[in-house]
């Protein structure tokens, strides 16, 4: 594998009794988009704030570009672009003032590039940030993060508020960054945001890193989405007993379920006893794999949080 850009070693952060991060180990490599996934309150933002030296770990350490994140924070930040979650800017400055301010603090920002980014994202820099809609404010935040051509981009929920067109533009900007060998660390609670650009994803819940896998491995997990249509209604309970079946949904004559077993086992369960009209199966996308991961361990309130953030894409 290529050079390690960001490394977390046994990272733990406690707030009193609350364990925000527990023994987190992570490596992000040069030239990849690393997706950092987890439900709200899982510890994503806490981890990012530790990377940025806004808060300090209780134990463990962070190395970025081979430098200690605490001791060499300024040098590290020179090469980082950062977009915080729930972006707050100075309401009384215009977009242009805001970017000028940060460009002054950074030094060495090419203003022509800033204009270029603004054009791509169709950002209005003449208005006061306080008068912008949240999507347009987010654009100012994105330009700010991209404008110094950082070696590492750290972004917390970057596409929040962006319309689909802008999200696509944003994703192509990310691909260009990767093509230049730079690195992106992308935190999100929506998989759709990450799966189009990320090579690897880390899943975090309750402050613990549950898994790190390549998006490809996720996709090749044998979970399939199966839709069965019958002549007459069939009870969901029929499928509950089949090993590998989960999330059974009964809609009149249709049964929708997730399945990670052998297809003939499933078919034998139904074919002899019921009048099967049609069957469609699809490769599960990241989102469903993600949900499956959580369903195994999630507490009830967490499961609700997942459901609200998941969204099912329409696929051919």
């Amino acid at each position: 594998m290529s050079e390690v850009v960001l490394q977390a070693e046994s990272l733990t952060k406690h707030y009193g009794d609350v364990q925000a991060l527990v023994d987190l180990n992570l490596e992000v490599y040069a030239g990849e988009v690393f997706g950092f996934l987890g439900p709200n309150g899982a510890g994503k933002t806490t981890a990012i704030r530790v990377f940025m030296d806004e808060i300090r770990p209780t134990t463990g350490r962070i190395t970025i570009f081979g430098m200690d994140a605490r001791k060499k924070s300024v040098e590290i930040r020179r090469r980082i672009g950062y977009l915080p979650g729930e972006l707050a800017l100075y309401p009384n400055l215009t977009g242009r003032d805001t970017l000028t301010y940060f460009a002054n603090l950074r030094g060495g920002v090419d203003w022509a590039y800033v204009e270029q980014l603004a054009d791509r994202l169709v950002a209005d820099l003449s208005k006061k940030v306080g008068d912008l809609s949240s999507g347009n404010r987010q654009k100012v935040g994105l330009i700010q993060a991209f404008m110094n051509k950082p070696d590492l981009l750290i972004m917390d929920e970057p596409s929040s508020g962006l319309d689909p067109l802008m999200q696509r533009e944003f994703q192509s900007m990310l691909r260009e960054i990767i093509a230049e060998g730079r690195t992106v660390f992308l935190s999100s609670h929506t998989l759709s945001e990450v799966q189009r650009v990320a090579e690897r994803v880390g899943i975090i819940r309750h402050g613990r890193l549950v898994a790190v896998e390549s998006v490809h491995d996720f996709r090749s997990k044998s979970i399939r989405r199966v839709e069965l249509e019958f002549r007459s209604p069939v009870a969901a309970s029929v499928f509950a007993a089949v090993p590998g079946v989960r999330d059974v949904l009964s809609q009149n004559h249709r049964i929708v379920l997730s399945y990670d077993g052998k297809m003939d086992v499933l078919l034998r369960t139904v074919a002899d006893r019921y009048d099967l009209v049609d069957i469609t199966t699809q490769e599960a996308d990241l989102e469903e794999v993600f949900l499956a991961y959580y369903r195994d361990e999630a507490t009830p309130d967490e499961a609700t949080g997942n459901d609200s953030t998941s969204h099912r894409g329409v696929r051919a």
């Binding site: 806004e54 707050a88 603090l105 950074r106």
Partner: peptide, 14 residues
């Protein structure tokens, strides 16, 4: 309080 400190300190300044 205005939550802008994080962004300010994302710049290479101590």
């Amino acid at each position: 309080a205005d939550r802008t400190m994080g962004l300010l300190l994302a710049n290479p300044i101590s």
